[in-house]
């Protein structure tokens, strides 16, 4: 593996990703606004879930991870059409290594964007311990790898058409977010919704994150099941992404 080259590419991409810190600050402000204004209002209405305010805040962190994963995929497709991808493909690194670098980029961007929200939830809920902090970050990283791998793999399939990619991601996002436990526990769903949610890895990710933080676990999905699903998602999408990148990725004539 070309460690030096991959780390150079990662630094180059990070420099671009954080060239404007405005959008990072914006994402934090968005979280604060959503959490404190909307979260506090909605939590007075939801009485069936104990401490819904923090349940909701954790859901926002998962949502943020999902959005960053979508950004990674979109960036990949945009890069193909802007000419960035073909340049990277001409450089002396393997396609699989490039995929892993993209994954690492997404995970780092995700950690930077979700770290303050995670700290706010942990500190305000009084559940901050070194263990809860580390395990929360571990779950977020695992979840990010899984979703990121999925989104970048999807982008590899659809990267010849930005429209196709956008349509697939929009449909998938709608399904994965609605049929999940990001905003509501599985016990509040009817049987049909609950069945769909149980086949959605995001639901397991959201509930595992709540367990890591230390929220009331009576409403959450089984921990070992959730861990298995998340690990399977992460490992599966890594292999899928490397396979697609190695077999199918090539430069696209820039538009």
């Amino acid at each position: 593996m070309n460690t030096y080259q991959i780390s150079s590419l990662l630094m180059f991409d990070l420099r671009e990703a954080f060239n404007s810190l405005l959008w990072v600050g914006y994402s934090w402000i968005y979280f604060l606004f959503q959490f404190f204004v909307y979260g506090s209002i909605i939590s007075t209405l939801v009485v069936t879930v104990h401490n819904y305010f923090f349940y909701y805040g954790t859901g926002l962190v998962v949502l943020s991870t999902f959005n960053i994963a979508s950004w990674s995929g979109r960036r990949f497709v945009e890069g193909a059409h802007e000419g960035r991808l073909r340049y990277i493909l001409s450089l002396p690194i393997g396609r699989g290594e490039f995929f892993m670098e993209q994954l690492a980029l997404g995970v780092i961007v995700n950690l930077i964007r979700t770290l303050p929200p995670v700290l706010i939830v942990l500190l305000l809920s009084g559940l901050f311990t070194p263990f809860s902090f580390v395990s929360t970050l571990a779950v977020i990283t695992l979840l990010a790898i899984g979703i990121m791998g999925l989104m970048v793999s999807l982008s590899v399939i659809a990267f010849k058409s930005f429209d196709i990619y956008s349509a697939i991601v929009a449909a998938l996002s709608a399904l994965l977010i609605r049929f999940s436990t990001i905003s509501y526990p599985i016990s509040s769903m009817n049987e049909l919704y609950a069945r769909a949610t149980l086949s959605n890895p995001i639901a397991y990710g959201a509930d595992l994150l709540r367990r890591a933080i230390g929220l009331d676990n009576s409403l959450l999905l089984n921990a070992s099941m959730a861990t298995s699903v998340l690990v399977a998602l992460a490992v599966g999408t890594i292999f899928l992404g490397i396979f697609f990148a190695t077999k199918f990725v090539e430069g696209v004539k820039s538009s």
């Binding site: 671009e16 404007s20 802007e82 340049y87």
Partner: peptide, 21 residues
């Protein structure tokens, strides 16, 4: 491919994609 890429470099027709760098 990788051995080829170590020895070859290309200047593209329409350089784009690194707007902020």
């Amino acid at each position: 491919q990788l051995q080829v890429r170590r020895l070859v470099a290309i200047a593209f027709q329409d350089p784009r994609g690194f707007w902020r760098h």
